[in-house]
Design a protein around this nucleic acid. Structure first.
Lengths: 354, 354
DNA sequence: GAATTCCCTTGAACCGATTCAAAATCTAGG
DNA sequence: CCTAGATTTTGAATCGGTTCAAGGGAATTC
């Protein structure tokens, strides 16, 4: 007697058709060893006939509670994960950690705040890694609502109530500036990242102190720690806020180099900006590092493989991702904050001052 | 009277505490406009007091059935998505398509077959895109079990029963060879991808015809279509199977160039292999394209931005990803097969034969 | 022959929401 | 004041499984 179903077969259908309880069918698929072979094979045969391919994860999920996947959220379009060098390197570390634990990876994004809210609220994950490159505050706020473990990366405002992994920006920046001082440079320019959202242009020290993004502020402090100690008048060091893109970086360079005494050393808060600066200077006939030395920040792979390799302060990007996953999966829900070390990678964009 | 729960609050708890039905609480969060303002605010207040932050997606999922996410599966480690140029470019297209539709993205992988099976069987997704670069057959088999819509990309064996998006490999290869013939070349070498799993070395035409991966076979046919028409004895054109890595590509080059009459033109089945070949030749003091012309296949961004830009047959990689998503989300479950056009991108690795 | 084990299997509770027909309440018109 | 119609709210079914205490039956021990 073949029963024809008007829908896809469920566990219960198989149970009824095979004349056993639902629990037994469940065991056949999940713990086959506890079911008598005869019964097991019979159930399997019936399941096959009904086109039942195994328990639907949607059902299991509710009972089990665990999704076995981590969500990586960012306030950028999804392709950010595959195009931005920093994100890509970070995802390498995250991927490895997830592979090791057999966890899946869900990419979560939103361009507008409505979509972001919905995506974060409904993502089927066991925890979140927040890429707070931009709009970090809001991302944290939304995620908090979910009441799932999460770790913030590159978060501007350090909040002691949430887990985070990062680097010591101030110390990294200090080392960067010290490197250039050691090479004899005395005239500097700082190509900064955003202090507040969507603003670019020259900034004053007061604006630096009022920064929303403490990452940028800390780095300025770090640069100035070294410059000040070397007796350089930091009030005369130009700081230009960029949006980490070509247009604003070019504007920053024009601002600094169309002057009587242009800098001989550029302190850049990202490798991206540093690479753009290098191209711009060369196009203007200035030699790097002959006439101008450039140091970046981040340590993205592109910096090392560029036509002219970039000296930079490397962050252990992949490790940051890895630690984030570990904290979520094994942190036991406790708040953890980790500061990983940076490293000065001296390559071919810095040289002795003339 | 404050009720204290020993667990996280649920919809039902809020309903009871607020003295309304569960359905009303559900409406407050999902269709607030149908609930009287007074009730709505009251429920919200109670929810807040109980620490209920909104309906749990795990519960909603079961009822709604839709996850609103697409799974991208590959038989490689997860970091493949972020390190392999082809995969990255593909994911760009997929990301855009998902962003447009507000769909999420789940990355699914496995190193060993057990893990792969589990991940594919349990992924919470509405459909799959299969990257059949390697182990495609098995991936298709596993996915079929899930009874969810899926699209295969770069699948070796064309199976008319499954949806797929790809390019006309034979025609693309023909155009590649024709380009070199037009430049006057008469001595060719073919650096092939795998015909069967994990094998490398020189292959005979019989082995080509017996290929598991029809992509590689079709490309050989395409190359030979052009070479044969130009009156070149294809039996004397060496074909070397590589694993798309440095070691086997170097072996292939040694095999071809340690001969009396080395080729003046290399037909490579991937840009990766082509770039490796270019480096190898230069390291041996051979000029590209002065002494040897090289043409790739794929059109990865690295080929265009390389120190010496690579001539290649470009696949519309991002478009392939985009179409795959569209087929899953809007295909209505019907089987669809699409062949997208390739394009000859002439850059700096091919030149007139001497 | 009764008691004790051991091995399977059962049945029902539970996971956390959405949905919708039906009931209850309110509003306006006669 | 009554009623038709509009607006809200309820209650119960449903989604598809997992889990585990309790039960049944066969084998083993006393």
């Amino acid at each position: 007697m073949a029963v024809v179903l008007d829908r896809v077969a469920r566990l219960a259908d198989v149970a009824k058709a095979a004349g056993v309880s639902q629990g037994t069918v469940s065991n056949v698929f999940n713990r086959p060893e506890v079911v008598r072979e005869e019964v097991r094979e019979h159930v399997r045969a019936v399941a096959k006939k009904l086109g039942f391919r195994g328990p639907d994860p949607k059902g299991r999920l509710l009972r089990a509670g665990k999704v076995n996947a981590i969500g990586i959220a960012v306030a950028e379009p999804l392709d950010y994960f595959f195009t931005d060098p920093f994100a890509r390197e970070l995802m390498r570390g995250i991927s490895d950690a997830c592979d090791d634990r057999g966890a899946g990876l869900s990419l979560i994004s939103a361009l507008n705040s409505d979509g972001l809210a919905w995506n974060v609220q409904n993502a089927l994950v066991d925890g979140f890694v927040l890429l707070c490159i931009e709009g970090g505050e809001r991302l944290v706020e939304l995620t908090r609502e979910r009441q799932l473990p999460f770790v913030a990366l590159a978060l501007g405002k350090p909040d002691p109530s949430i887990s985070a992994v990062g680097v010591d920006d101030r110390e990294g920046a200090r080392v960067a500036a010290q490197h250039l001082i050691d090479l004899g440079h005395r005239r500097f320019g700082i190509l900064a990242l955003e202090f507040v959202d969507d603003r670019s242009g020259p900034v004053t020290m007061a604006e630096v102190e009022a920064a929303v993004y403490s990452t940028s502020r800390d780095r300025v402090h770090g640069y100035f720690d070294a410059l000040g100690a070397a007796g350089i008048d930091t009030r005369r060091v130009p700081i230009y806020e960029t949006l980490n893109d070509e247009a604003t970086t070019h504007a920053a360079l024009a601002f600094m180099f169309d002057t009587q005494e242009p800098p001989t050393a550029l302190l850049c808060m990202s490798d991206r900006v540093a690479l753009i600066a290098m191209d711009w200077l060369k196009a203007r006939g200035l030699e790097v590092p002959g006439q101008v030395s450039i140091i970046g920040f981040d340590g993205i792979p592109e910096g090392a493989t560029a036509a002219q390799p970039l000296t930079t302060i490397s962050q252990p990007i992949a490790d940051i991702g890895k630690r984030a996953i570990e904290i979520i999966l094994e942190g036991g829900g406790k708040v953890r904050r980790e500061i990983l070390p940076t490293r000065l990678d001296i390559r071919a964009s810095t040289a002795k001052a003339i």
